[in-house]
Design a protein around this nucleic acid. Sequence first.
DNA 1: TATATAATTAACCAATCGGTTAGTTAGTTA
DNA 2: TAACTAACTAACCGATTGGTTAATTATATA
Lengths: 210, 210
Amino acid sequence: MKPKTRDAVKTKQTILQNAKYLFSQKGFDATSINEIAEASHINKAMLYYYFKSKKDIYEVVVKEILSSIYKEITMSEKCCDSAVGDLRAFISIYTQFANKHPYFPALLLRELSNSGKNLSESVLAGCIQLFRLFSDILQRGEDEEAFKDVKPMVVFCMVISTVNILVVTKPLRQTAAKKADDLDTSSDISVNEISEYIFKKITLMLGVAL
Amino acid sequence: MKPKTRDAVKTKQTILQNAKYLFSQKGFDATSINEIAEASHINKAMLYYYFKSKKDIYEVVVKEILSSIYKEITMSEKCCDSAVGDLRAFISIYTQFANKHPYFPALLLRELSNSGKNLSESVLAGCIQLFRLFSDILQRGEDEEAFKDVKPMVVFCMVISTVNILVVTKPLRQTAAKKADDLDTSSDISVNEISEYIFKKITLMLGVAL
DNA sequence: TATATAATTAACCAATCGGTTAGTTAGTTA
DNA sequence: TAACTAACTAACCGATTGGTTAATTATATA
């Protein structure tokens, strides 16, 4: 099989890949179509050959990201021995994903800051799907009498937003630490430390007294 | 005193006020200078008469917001009877501020998502100032043996980001609740409920066993 | 090998961007 | 009231924006 000089699948993937990188680094508005085209070494007109509009590209990117994190979490949820175990897995996988794809937290935070103005129906559905997963774990925890006084959405926001903010502010926290050396900004905390600390604290705050 | 038809102070304030609203609603890049001028009913050239650039306007806006939240928190911190009391006051004031000025959480989240790319030195300093306030409370709590195993930055992010996200996603959570009525998105949780719940949970997770 | 079509390109579009200019008012002061 | 200046305006600037066009390749099929 000789390498084709023309490959529709590859071209489309290249566009999406560069779009994902740029959108997450600079946001929707600060990223131009020309920029995506240049980064992809693909003629700008091709972006409109494969996609309807800039917004369309953006939506596909966000959808892809959300579905991939959802897949990773559901795949790993095989232990199922307890709600606490599932919670730990959820937090761990989510934190690892956020660290592995640092574009994701930035993009999600920006998206939510717009109250979902750029957000399509299907993307909102993706967020809900993720929340449902988390909510179910907490419900099971209450059934097992491991958790009490649970407001699922608040706890969900607590976990997700804390992880996202910590990932996103890493360079900022390092800068701050250098500038004010008496300040403990947790600038070199590891991925596992973050995930384990949050897990421990969340179980503590939801835990029933012994 | 007859009303002046020309008033430099008022004009500048009008610009800043509209800029604050627009920047927080749509972000830096999506907000145009023309837009700010039109919303203010002021000739575009005036924006460059009072400010150096678009970025300059943005920085002044962010600085103003940060210093006003800092003022509100430091002013209310008079109780001082215990670290737990101060923590409660901090969370309460911050939550109230975020709700009273809902533009603030959106703007802050977006700013952090850029790793402070648009952020000036002085704005970063404002964030650090706020963190120091929070960090001191936690330190006092450890000294008083009310708190243990504290990672100040993580706890700080936990509180601030949770409040911000809850404020920012309020319309989104209401939409989601209507769409899937079996879903508990805490869509009509009150300001006080948020602040009290977070306070309770944070003290639980930092608390020493009785 | 001729043909149809999928993939790609360069050139172009009106609209808007952030920012500047030169000139005009209104209010203060001498 | 004459002069000065702070506040304001309309018109303009080159660059860039998202998006389109018609023409041109390359490749699979018949």
